[in-house]
Design a protein around this nucleic acid. Structure first.
Lengths: 378, 378
DNA sequence: CTCACTTCCTTCGATTTCGAAGATAAGCGG
DNA sequence: CCGCTTATCTTCGAAATCGAAGGAAGTGAG
């Protein structure tokens, strides 16, 4: 039903390796795919004839003949991706290697419900396609990130906390009525993790924490997004050790989110008489050395670190990447690190890197691109 | 260097599918391996000629012709596996499908150091081989479980807590001097998890908790043992919420192990004037309805449940299997369940099964068999 | 019992993949 | 400039794999 890329057999694997940037030459492909060099040459030939791959000059020598560089042909197709937030949507077009063609941000109230929101996104896609993509370059896939849990089996939104009207809405089906293409619907933190993974080559196991208004987390195991039964990666409703007791929106007391999320920090600041409207404002306050803000952020980092301690011991990742708008506040990362180093097993922290996210603002869109390419090739 | 099984190419995959019990017929193999039915027939023919596979009667029809059942030939080889504890070792021989040929338990003090201990094990292997295996049936691999952390890169023991003389000892190298074969050295909880995984067909993501003298945990992700950087699965040194403060052997206060391990329960019972020597004795007390014991076990279960809550939200497994000698105490599982159901996200517990381990006492040996077969086929 | 249907397994020619050998194209040291 | 080394890529016969077709052996409905 879905119009997939016209590739068969081993071609898909080769195309994927080039698209994800892991391979740049026929020799790379032979090494990474496990195929014989001769077979690789044959398939690459076919892919070039089909207009999907292109040769582009020579790469740098590694001591012998220089490789002939391969890249995805710009006519191979584009992907339309979006990342939905509470009050805005970030969306754009990528080529098949995940490189942005155009990305923009629009206001968009998720509370307007799924139909209007999704139609707005689709309209925006159509406008961008008309403006930025030649008519003969095909759209190969459509994907969106959702700020709530998505059931991977049905691609529906399930029990979202701040998305009235979205519960059990069949997002993928709705988009599929407009696009006869592979459709991706995924939690936003998961997309961010998938996007971040490309920036940590060599690291197979990652935790990616999104510290923004809420606290999200995505998990990469063996280079692939781990979904579990659909809810994997949640860390925001872990109970933290505390003297006081705050009731979280989820109905349980003392969730991490109630202490360390951007939303929690903003209300704590309000109580101290400092009004802010976005988590990014907290970063500004910290940079301006407002003591209340710094202390709050440090506290949040320590609490997040205590939770991460458990998960680092258990999951033992290579990297914990911290992103989201709050992550720009230096003391956050410092406090997370301190808590994890102090409490974790030496074996677990031996080669662990706790670092700022590398993918930047478009991490989720890039992740959507990666996963969509996978879907279009399978 | 290591004498591997005389298989090449696709033969290994097919043999593995039969050995692990996932395939019983050529048709199964075709479905699971992705090979064409004709290719499967050819390879199976070769494996039968090589004496590795055997045909054995007919299976049950699924609505058409009955399949011709395949099993590993009994002459294909045996595996020698051991599971080392603090004061004893459980060891035996398995056929290549992991079915026990002979298993026995011997006293053995791990504190005697690695050389004497490992030589004892090897002597026991040799004796069992001489007695139970015809001389023309080859030994295909040797493996042992270690009650401490094992670095998967070097197969050495690293910073074990109750194994004097073992730190940094190259266990695999030492065994390899006696056996020119694939050698497996792995943490005991990991082996147990690998063994348990076979008993949960259809479940790809498992947590296996071993509640004995200590608290161990192994993780199966996508059907494979997750090692992380070598320390994955540790849950015993997570900080628990507590009014009091107990210093754990690891140097940190309030580790789960200090509250909920068999060792911790035994010393708590001793304080109440009830002397026991093994965690299994606690189970007896609980079954005899000794109130102190029941209350302690219930408390331990609750604490373990609180820790598992975090991990279930994060990892979102299909199954949490609870084994180890303490797991025979009913209230343990009940309290774990109660804590997890109460606090976890509905999406995470929707289809979650928290159940007693199924593999029984030989779980670790079976796991060693599974992993060794893998090693012998790669 | 017969007939339609399903599943299992094999046969055989077409296709794909492999791998050894060689051609091509660099870097490097004298 | 010239050999020596390294790496990339192609050629071509051998081997593995595929897939369509068909035979074998069962189930179930009428």
């Amino acid at each position: 039903m879905n119009q997939r890329l016209p590739v068969q057999g081993a071609q898909g694997d080769l195309l994927r390796l080039v698209a994800t940037g892991r391979a740049e030459s026929r020799a790379d492909l032979a090494r990474l795919s496990g195929l014989a060099a001769s077979s690789v040459s044959l398939r690459v030939e076919e892919l070039i004839d089909a207009g999907l791959l292109a040769e582009e000059g020579a790469g740098t020598s590694r001591g012998g003949r220089r490789p002939r560089r391969l890249r995805l042909s710009s006519g191979a197709g584009v992907l339309a991706v979006a990342d939905l937030g509470a009050h805005h949507v970030r969306l754009g077009l990528l080529d098949l290697s995940g490189v942005p063609i155009v990305i923009e941000e629009r206001r968009c109230e998720i509370a307007e419900g799924p139909r209007r929101t999704l139609d707005r996104i689709a309209d925006a896609f159509d406008a961008l396609l008309a403006e930025h993509v030649p008519a003969d370059v095909p759209l190969r896939g459509v994907g969106t990130g959702i700020p709530g849990p998505v059931d991977p089996a049905t691609l529906r939104v399930v029990t979202p906390s701040r998305m009235p009207g979205w519960n059990e809405f069949p997002v993928a089906e709705h988009l599929a009525t407009r696009y006869d293409l592979p459709v991706l619907v995924e939690n936003d933190a998961n997309l961010m993790a998938a996007g971040e993974a490309r920036w940590w080559p060599g690291s197979e196991n990652l935790m990616v924490v999104k510290a923004g208004t809420g606290i999200g987390c995505g998990v990469i195991v063996n280079g692939h997004l781990h979904r579990g039964r659909g809810a994997a990666g949640d860390i925001s409703h872990v109970r933290v050790r505390s003297d006081s007791s705050i009731l979280c929106a989820c109905g349980h007391p003392d969730c991490l989110e109630a202490y360390a999320s951007g939303a929690a920090l903003m209300s704590a600041l309000a109580e101290a008489g400092i009004e802010v409207t976005r988590p990014a404002d907290i970063v500004t306050l910290v940079n301006d050395a407002v003591p209340e803000a710094t202390s709050l952020v440090r506290n949040a980092g320590r609490r997040m670190g205590e939770v991460l301690t458990v998960l680092v011991n258990f999951f033992n990742p290579d990297v914990v990447a911290v992103g989201g708008s709050l992550s720009a506040a230096e003391p956050l990362l410092t406090s997370i690190r301190a808590a994890v180093w102090e409490r974790c097993l030496p074996l677990a922290t031996r080669d662990l890197e706790i670092a700022p996210a590398r993918a930047g603002r478009d991490a989720a869109l890039q992740g959507a691109g990666t996963l969509l390419l996978e879907a279009a090739l399978t």
